[in-house]
Design a protein around this nucleic acid. Sequence first.
DNA 1: CGCTAAGTGGACCACGTTGATCCGCTTAGT
DNA 2: ACTAAGCGGATCAACGTGGTCCACTTAGCG
Lengths: 219, 219
Amino acid sequence: MTSTDDRPLRRDAQLNRDRIIRAAQEVFAQRGLAGTFHNVADQAGVGLGTVYRRFATKELLVEAVYEQRLADFVGTVEAALHAPTGWDGLVDVLSTAARLHATDRGLRDVVLTRGHRPRSFAAFTDRMEPLLNQLVDRARTEGSLRADVTAEDLPILLALISEVAMHGDPVRPGIHARYLQLLLDGLRRSPTAGALGEPLARRELDAIADSWLPRLDHT
Amino acid sequence: MTSTDDRPLRRDAQLNRDRIIRAAQEVFAQRGLAGTFHNVADQAGVGLGTVYRRFATKELLVEAVYEQRLADFVGTVEAALHAPTGWDGLVDVLSTAARLHATDRGLRDVVLTRGHRPRSFAAFTDRMEPLLNQLVDRARTEGSLRADVTAEDLPILLALISEVAMHGDPVRPGIHARYLQLLLDGLRRSPTAGALGEPLARRELDAIADSWLPRLDHT
DNA sequence: CGCTAAGTGGACCACGTTGATCCGCTTAGT
DNA sequence: ACTAAGCGGATCAACGTGGTCCACTTAGCG
């Protein structure tokens, strides 16, 4: 029903639109998706009304900001599937994700959110899921990854690391890598490792992520 | 300067005071120290004014609620120093803390806070610090704990686990133990472990904890 | 009892934040 | 030079928060 009027924007309007997106990138990077339209308008040096006119809902703005970045990340994961060993691939993905989350808090919110979100992001999750499963399977089969870890653990681990990154990296840049390494060493197969118990089901993971991250829909 | 009037409370006042403390326990357990006086008053079934009269500041209320619990926890850590092995002691402390944090979010806030807080809690930290150092030293010396981990890592690890507990345990009770186990396996000395880099300094840890947890002082 | 200091409740105030709209003015571009 | 498109930001409503105040109630002493 939303008649998408595709007439090209006036030159000045297009200019402002770009400024808004760039501003939103910075705002979301610092404050996460909790950043407000006010923040964005200020950062862009543009009126609040202008932001609302260009992006009627936050979803639309978030989508515009992160569409490309998400696609890039899928590329990273795909590339990791062709790493020399499965373990290398897993480390690649976790490190890259950690580094990205450390510098862009909004990206973390977008990547880890499971509930309602823009159409285009659902596609991202759909593409991601089989890739992560392959990644985990490969590393497990080759014997480097402990057998009782599943793909459902990855989002939780990422959430943890990005938590460290969020609070720790401003104090000591890169400190999140310390705790990522600790986790990686815990993920490696080892004779001394303790039992982990029943892994999380998809449904449970979704519920947890849902309570962990800020909701994009509200009103 | 605060003339502490020690006249005993009237019977009904004392009763309400107890009700308030019990209510605050529940409120803080669920919502962390971010719980408000309004919340507490409602939960206690008592007027807002009554809460304010009995506890002029949040600090006083928090202190009344957690003084005993903190002392108990110090006891746990002391006991852990006499565990069969240093590793067992470390596991005891981390598991116990994780379990407590999982059921009381306010306790987590209190334990992990480093900045301004009630006098009596500063004493807690002071007693705690040497104990944790001993605990880590012992486990490291006996060769079970990897050499590049320090006592400053423990609060960060606890913060991580309690993060999982906060969001995960309501969905799957006890799920935090899964990720604690993963971390523990990462903490064990192992030939395949990767380098951790420079450990956190006390000052850095304090700064991180400060940004991580809700401030108790504000206004 | 009866009296009064102590205690009580919750309406109320001040304030900050957030989402969202509206409309008088400006300007791009034909 | 004219008009549709665009602009800004004051403004509104809703909400949550910390905190005070004061008319009413009651414990418990003499």
